[in-house]
């Protein structure tokens, strides 16, 4: 399952142009605490978060994550999108709350 499949299945809106949508997704990590993601997320995972701050891009790059899903109708800051473009990190947004996005992704990744 790649990023594009998940974008379609979860009806996400991709906010960045340069990310790799063909990239294989190896799992998912949900967290709104950057230090927690730094400590516990694994390479190739999609990261679900409420954070819209530019620092999320540095975290995604350092951990080599497959992309970031921002939930609950939040919009990333302009600076965040600019950094995402520079680094080639995919950001997608969802109108739904974290529990629902995470729950659906769990059922999708299991099948």
């Amino acid at each position: 399952m790649n990023v594009r499949d998940i974008v379609e299945r979860l009806s996400l809106e991709v906010k960045t142009a340069k990310g790799d949508l063909q990239r294989e997704v190896r799992g998912c990590y949900i967290s709104d605490l950057l230090s927690d993601v730094m400590a516990n997320a694994r390479e190739g995972e999609l990261w679900i978060t409420l954070q819209t701050h530019p620092n999320i891009i540095a975290v995604a790059v350092l951990k080599n994550l497959a992309g970031i899903i921002i939930t609950n109708k939040r919009t990333p800051e302009e600076e965040t999108l600019k950094k995402a473009g520079d680094e080639g990190v995919t950001i997608a947004v969802s109108q739904s709350p974290t529990f629902e996005v995470g729950g659906k992704l769990y059922t999708i990744l299991q099948c």
Binding site: D32, L33, L34, S35, T52, H53, R74, T75, E77
Partner: peptide
């Protein structure tokens, strides 16, 4: 504005400053 915050990172790590 929703999402605007001047809180430093350590406040965000305590669950605030969103």
């Amino acid at each position: 504005q929703e999402g605007y915050s001047t809180a430093p990172d350590w406040i965000r790590e305590m669950g605030w400053g969103a």
